[in-house]
């Protein structure tokens, strides 16, 4: 098994601050507060090529701009999965097909989809942490023969908060040797959920025990809120993962996207430029 190799500070060039105009071509509800928004150039083309895990700044004058992981790339569009949590995302949710926004990127590095070839993959995500991770899942399923067994452990607060339900319950389980494990933290009668109720970290351990999963020749990909990240990181290491085999994608407030404005600085790195994807072995060397 060769080492997972992450590139850092790899996004380069381009006009860093001024976005290109893009047109919204599709807006869909994912959940009560999450929407999928597809954008393309006014000429109907792909705004730019991205690698799974990279970021883009979506700008909505006069309200502002926010950094998102690019959830997916189609032949002629980029797709963002956006949760309504603040001032700009509230406005982004009001977008209709035909509206125009600014988009700049791609920023940051990508998941180690090359160096992870041949390994089993364990994806762990919580809530709105799924869209970034899904970009790697999508890539792995498109290149199914290149990877071993795939396990996806995903949780959200309630059944309503699970994003990509079609993929979780219909598409992915049909893929060869692909196993989807879903839990919710809170269930109520009649909410449509009859599966596992529990937090992600203990559920992750249960899944490993029940399925008899091993950590050798595997890579784990983790993304979620602060408490999920902390607990699942611990769980993965306790399960026996080497920190060099656990990758995560970080989030911070960002303004410039090109490692200058200072906001996402942690130790000697800028998350927007050197990240957002790091291995746990790298993060352990960076002061908190």
């Amino acid at each position: 098994m060769s080492e997972l190799v992450l590139q850092h500070g790899c996004a380069k060039g381009g006009e860093p601050y001024v976005p290109q105009v893009c047109r919204v071509i599709d807006v869909r509800d994912q959940t009560h507060d999450v929407k999928t928004i597809r954008v393309q150039t006014p000429e109907g083309g792909l705004p730019f090529e991205r690698k799974p895990g990279q970021l883009a700044m979506v700008s909505l004058p006069p309200y502002g701009e926010c950094m998102f992981a690019i959830a997916s790339q189609g032949p002629d569009y980029l797709e963002f999965v956006i949760k309504r949590v603040g001032f700009v995302t509230e406005r982004l949710h009001e977008l209709r097909p035909g509206d125009e926004v600014g988009v700049r990127g791609p920023y940051g590095n990508w998941f180690p989809f090359d160096s992870a070839r041949g390994r089993n993959l364990v994806f762990v995500a919580g809530g709105i942490g799924m869209p970034p991770v899904r970009s790697f899942i999508e890539y792995a399923l498109e290149h199914r023969a290149d990877y071993g067994r795939i396990d996806i452990v995903y949780s959200a607060s309630t059944y309503d908060d699970l994003v990509y339900k079609d993929d979780l319950f219909q598409n992915w389980p049909k893929e060869p040797d692909t196993h989807v494990h879903v839990s919710v933290y809170h269930a109520t009668d009649g909410d449509g959920w009859s599966g596992k109720v529990g937090y992600t970290a203990p559920y992750l351990k249960e899944v490993f025990a029940e399925e008899g999963l091993a950590t050798d020749n595997a890579a784990a990909v983790l993304c979620g809120g602060p408490s999920l990240y902390r607990t699942c990181r611990e769980a993965l290491l306790e399960l026996g993962f080497d920190p060099a085999d656990v990758v995560t994608t970080l989030e911070a407030r960002m303004k410039c996207g090109v490692g200058k404005c200072g906001r996402c600085n942690v130790g000697g790195v800028f998350i927007c430029l050197d990240g957002p994807v790091f291995t746990e072995a790298e993060l352990a060397r960076i002061p908190r």
Partner: peptide, 19 residues
């Protein structure tokens, strides 16, 4: 010290982004 914010100046249907 070089940290900057990016914000905007808005006049109805036009404006400027500044740092």
């Amino acid at each position: 010290c070089y940290c900057f914010d990016i914000s905007q100046d808005v006049r109805a249907d036009e404006g400027a982004r500044f740092r």
